[in-house]
């Protein structure tokens, strides 16, 4: 990652520097969108959530303290907005099913893998919101359990419990398919 570090940019954002804010949002928007899409399960809502999250970053920047990484704070805002959104208006997971299987003839193993992925994706979307968030933060964003705990505002053992429960459900779904 080139350019100034996140905390330097945040110090400038706290002084009202719009250019630093633009740089910061360009740096993190893709990861934030990806996270919001997986947890929210809806592309259009994910865009709104990420926009709202960045606006909150701008508004609260003067109060931000670099106790934790900026990314962790941003993810926490995104996750909380997603959970609030899901609580308010549960949406049908349109993207959950993933892309339809390629109808062109292909190796059986590849088709089977695609089908397994579809089953797992559907099962992820059916998980309770916090379990889904733990899975996405850990696998998609590669966060450690401690970082995921910061984002989800829980303890490391709390994240481990969420992951164990989520994997148990996913394993059962996969076993049922097999």
């Amino acid at each position: 990652m080139g350019g100034p570090a996140d905390h330097e940019l945040m110090a400038r954002v706290a002084r009202g520097d719009g250019q630093a804010f633009s740089l910061l949002s360009r740096r993190h928007v893709r990861a934030a969108l990806s996270l919001a899409r997986r947890i929210g399960g809806n592309d259009a809502v994910a865009e709104e959530i990420v926009q709202e999250a960045f606006l909150r970053v701008w508004i609260h920047a003067p109060r931000w303290r670099p106790d934790a990484a900026f990314r962790t704070w941003l993810y926490r805002i995104v996750v909380n907005l997603c959970l609030n959104e899901r609580r308010r208006a549960p949406v049908l997971p349109l993207a959950a099913a993933g892309d339809p299987a390629d109808p062109a003839p292909g190796p059986d193993t590849e088709l089977a893998a695609q089908e397994r992925d579809r089953v797992v994706a559907t099962a992820i979307d059916a998980l309770p919101a916090r379990q889904r968030a733990a899975i996405v933060l850990t696998y998609q964003d590669g966060l450690s359990n401690a970082e995921a705990a910061d984002v989800l505002d829980t303890s490391v053992s709390g994240v481990e419990t969420l992951l164990v429960r989520a994997k148990r459900t996913l394993r059962a779904a996969l076993a049922a398919y097999a």
Binding site: A14, R26, R37, D43, A46, L55, W58, A61
Partner: peptide, 18 residues
């Protein structure tokens, strides 16, 4: 999607900070 979000953020005036 990132392009759309960034365009919306940059086209509108940012609110006042707390």
């Amino acid at each position: 999607a990132a392009g759309r979000v960034l365009a919306r953020l940059e086209s509108s005036a940012l609110p006042s900070q707390k």
